[in-house]
């Protein structure tokens, strides 16, 4: 069983990294032929960096739009981030220079309790999807399933953290072994099995689903373009090739 999970995790990781990288490459290579920042927009590159930072860290536009979605969405994402930091203790060895930070009690306990924020946020989002008629209308089965999957990942994690503890030393040996191709046994735990299997599913669907919003937001022309079309001529390669013959005239 442990070998099977190890293999699945590897497949999941490879698919996730490979296909997400392919998507990012696609976004990168596809030109934005026209200046379309949603104005008012920053007029400098620094301004754009700040705008994007506010968007990614604070969900600025969502805040303007709908406070409930913002509260739940932000709780979930922040919880996820903190929980992610906590999980680094399984992949970083004590000799690593990052260890003092990762093993810090603040990072670890924030990460532990962040799981509650994460699950609460997800339940809030799910409730809105079911209760609000407009959001129910635009939802596909996959939209519900993704929330449920994340909820189960979160809850199974919380179970291991607060209810039925697992042998974390054994788990760390498994994870370190995973990366060193020295496969170790997983601790016996139903919650862990569910947790890991669903993480594999998450990794597998990420590059093929709406989860691409994570890299996508950085490439959104309405948010990442500088508002300077009068000052600087913006021309896409395909347009330069096909629609620029007046310049030589």
């Amino acid at each position: 069983m442990s070998g099977f999970i190890a293999a699945l995790l590897w497949v999941g990781l490879v698919v996730f990294v490979g296909f997400t990288a392919r998507k990012i490459r696609q976004y990168w290579k596809t030109p934005a032929p026209l200046k379309i920042p949603t104005t008012p927009a920053p007029v400098t590159q620094t301004g754009v960096v700040f705008r994007m930072a506010r968007e990614v860290v604070l969900f600025e536009s969502l805040f303007k739009s709908n406070k409930w979605i913002w509260v739940f969405g932000w709780m979930f994402h922040l919880g996820l981030l903190l929980a992610f930091f906590r999980h680094l203790r399984y992949v970083v060895s004590p000799e690593n220079f990052m260890w003092p930070v990762i093993s810090n009690v603040i990072v670890q306990s924030f990460g532990q309790y962040a799981g509650f924020a994460m699950v609460a946020g997800l339940f809030g989002l799910l409730a809105r999807r079911i209760v609000v008629e407009r959001i129910r209308y635009i939802s596909s089965p996959s939209d519900y399933l993704m929330l449920l999957m994340l909820i189960v990942i979160g809850v199974s994690g919380l179970v291991m953290s607060f209810v039925s503890h697992i042998d974390v030393v054994q788990l760390k040996m498994f994870v370190m072994g995973l990366f060193g191709f020295d496969f170790q046994n997983l601790p016996e735990s139903g919650a862990l099995l569910i947790h890991l299997l669903l993480v594999v599913v998450l990794l597998l669907i990420f590059p093929f689903s709406k989860l691409l919003h994570a890299p996508g937001v950085f490439f959104s022309p309405t948010r990442n373009q500088i508002d300077n079309p009068r000052e600087k001529r913006h021309l896409a390669p395909w347009a330069a090739e096909k629609y620029n013959d007046h310049v030589d005239k």
Binding site: I69, R128, R134, I138, K210, G216, T222
Partner: peptide, 24 residues
Amino acid sequence: LRTRYRSFQVFLDSCVKCGACTDK
């Protein structure tokens, strides 16, 4: 179009159906 307009490709992929736009 999706090879010539980044907006089109990114926008088609990125929507999470959060519902923020539904009343706008």
